[in-house]
Simulated scan of single mutants.
Amino acid sequence: MKAVSVVTIKKELKHRSSEELLELCLRLSKFKKENKELLTYLLFESHDESGYIESVKAEINAQFEGINTKNYFYIKKSVRKILKTVKKYARYSLKKETEVELLLHFCTVLKDFKPSIFKNVTLTNSYERQIVLIKKIVSTLHEDLQYDYHLELEGLER
């Protein structure tokens, strides 16, 4: 079965009743965890973006605390998993400010992580790529926000 385009789906959804839309949403939420997470964000957390950011930051911290630090292989694997989670939660929001906040927090925690990530080339490169991405996103934001985020970035680059 080939999936149709988003435009086609949108046109079809316009012809459905609210009861049918409700059933479709509930059925969709049963198939993938990400669908359920996105619906949870849209229904319960999108109105309080700062609360959402804080809850994601707490989850990031918990994931970093659970990393097996016996060798760098496990650390790299865990850091990639955490970064994937950060990107997923940023994608739910669709707000650049949220993405920057989450990536800044990820980089801050990663920089302070023990054993130091700077003793491993792969982890250092991953950290630096996220810094470059943050700079790219910040350059598209309002000037006041750019200034605030640049101050935080300078602290990370030291």
Rank of each mutant, 00 (worst) to 15 (best):
Y52P: 04
E65Q: 07
K32I: 02
S17H: 09
K32S: 11
I53T: 04
L42R: 06
N35A: 11
E99C: 08
Y52L: 09
I82L: 01
I137H: 14
Y72R: 07
D144Y: 10
H105E: 15
K32E: 13
Y72A: 03
E45G: 02
S93H: 02
L22W: 09
A62T: 05
R129Q: 12
F44S: 09
C107N: 10
N71K: 13
N68T: 11
Y52F: 15
F73H: 13
L110H: 08
F44K: 10
F31Y: 00
E65C: 07
K95A: 10
E20Y: 05
E101W: 01
E99S: 10
K87D: 15
R80I: 00
E45R: 06
T85L: 14
L28S: 12
E37R: 15
K135N: 08
K95C: 08
K88F: 03
S78F: 02
V100Y: 07
K30P: 04
V79C: 14
L103M: 13
K76S: 07
N61M: 11
T69F: 02
R91W: 05
Y127T: 03
K57D: 07
G51T: 03
K14N: 12
T85H: 07
L24Q: 02
E54Y: 09
Y89K: 15
L110G: 06
K95R: 09
N68A: 03
K14D: 10
L103S: 07
N68S: 13
V121F: 07
C107G: 02
N35Y: 14
L28V: 11
I75S: 08
L22I: 09
F31E: 00
Q130H: 06
E45W: 05
T108F: 06
T69H: 08
K33D: 09
E97T: 03
L39M: 10
Y74Q: 15
N125S: 11
K95V: 04
Y52E: 00
L43H: 03
T85N: 05
F118L: 08
Y127K: 00
N61Q: 12
L43A: 12
L24G: 00
I67F: 04
L39K: 08
T124D: 04
K88Q: 15
K30I: 13
Y52K: 06
Y74R: 15
N68P: 07
K33L: 12
P115W: 05
L102I: 10
P115Y: 04
L123G: 10
E59V: 04
E37L: 14
E23M: 04
E143I: 08
K81W: 01
L110K: 08
S93A: 13
E54L: 10
E20L: 12
F118W: 13
H47A: 08
S29W: 01
E19T: 10
R27K: 15
G51K: 05
Y41F: 14
F118R: 06
T122F: 03
L42Q: 06
K135V: 03
K77V: 11
V138H: 08
K32V: 02
L42M: 05
K136A: 03
L43R: 05
P115T: 05
H105T: 14
L104N: 10
L22E: 11
Y41E: 01
I137S: 11
S139Y: 02
Y92M: 12
L24M: 11
E59W: 03
V132H: 01
L94C: 09
L83H: 15
V86I: 10
